[in-house]
């Protein structure tokens, strides 16, 4: 009895839900040792001149200086910015519009949903190859249009340095919007029917209801979707490898490919680590303020 009364003070905080805490120890260890530990290790070695094998001989910021002087890295960053901006906007907009259309109690909804989600079941490599063929001027869209009579029709984004990144964007959207649509649809289904009825009674038009009432109510879904899309953007790699392998020239290079190429092909771990650390910093710059607002601010509101 006495032990129990004493237990109701401070230590209880730690011992509450003991089973759950024990069960989560492996995951906590994984997170700390593998994710945090691995990250710290990578950052540490990015300040060394490690070549094929990691070596602790520090060279200060040399790797970072070289990184930011490399034209290929700059091109990679620009490509990532363009790709990220458009794929974020388009996949959210297209995904939401598709979901809203799907939510109109249409017939064969299951069929349509399956069709839309189908591309997501393919790996990026397959998507990349399919779109490489479609966008190939000799076999793909261009040749079909020409054979239909539009002789002057020209559409070969993958062979044009200036627009190649949009060719990759098309494939990424084709693959990704289905998932966004499903997430949005789930969000829409979570909205209480009464809200719609109330809006209708008040005579608010449909699109206004969506924009002013439904979307703000779907904040959680939007944030989840945003995180999923954003993480996909930063690590885009296989799509580029399958479609263009960075070409023509270096016009469609992306940061993840730079990291791989320098770590394994160029046998320069230091340079690869520096590049991956920069990727981490980029993500942190975006995620940290957002997480602070979202979770820090959220508690105050709640």
């Amino acid at each position: 009895m006495t032990a129990q009364t004493r237990g109701s003070a401070r230590p209880n905080q730690w011992l509450r839900n003991l089973n759950a805490k024990i069960a989560s120890i492996p995951m906590i260890l994984t997170a700390v040792v593998i994710f945090v530990g691995g990250t710290a290790w990578t950052v540490l070695y990015s300040f060394t001149n490690s070549k094929l094998l990691p070596r602790l001989s520090f060279v200060g910021f040399d790797q970072y200086e070289r990184l930011w002087e490399a034209p290929r890295w700059i091109v990679s960053i620009q490509n990532l910015a363009v790709f990220g901006f458009f794929s974020l906007i388009f996949s959210l907009v297209i995904g939401f519009v598709l979901a809203a259309l799907m939510d109109q109690k249409i017939r064969f909804e299951n069929t349509f949903r399956t069709i839309m989600l189908y591309p997501f079941a393919l790996s990026f490599i397959v998507t990349g190859l399919v779109w490489q063929w479609l966008l190939n001027p000799q076999y793909g869209i261009q040749s079909i249009m020409r054979s239909l009579g539009w002789e002057g029709f020209s559409f070969d984004p993958l062979y044009n340095s200036d627009i190649v990144i949009y060719g990759i964007l098309i494939a990424a959207l084709w693959q990704g919007t289905g998932l966004v649509m499903c997430l949005m649809l789930a969000g829409l289904r979570g909205i209480d029917e009464d809200i719609w009825k109330a809006a209708r009674v008040d005579g608010i038009s449909m699109w206004k209801t969506y924009v002013l009432i439904i979307i703000p109510m779907m904040r959680g879904v939007f944030i989840t979707t945003l995180v999923i899309i954003a993480s996909g953007i930063v690590k885009v790699y296989d799509l580029v490898v399958a479609q263009t392998s960075g070409g023509p020239g270096i016009a469609s290079e992306v940061p993840a490919k730079y990291v791989y190429d320098y770590m394994f092909l160029a046998q320069n771990l230091g340079q690869g680590f520096a590049a991956s650390t920069m990727m981490l910093v980029t993500v942190a710059i975006i995620i940290v303020p957002w997480a602070y607002l979202e979770f820090g601010g959220g508690r105050k509101r709640g």
Binding site: K51, A70, D261, Y262, L265, A266, Q267, N268, Q271
Partner: peptide
């Protein structure tokens, strides 16, 4: 040349 210079 080292593989690094070759890659550059």
């Amino acid at each position: 040349l080292s593989p690094d210079s070759q890659k550059q």
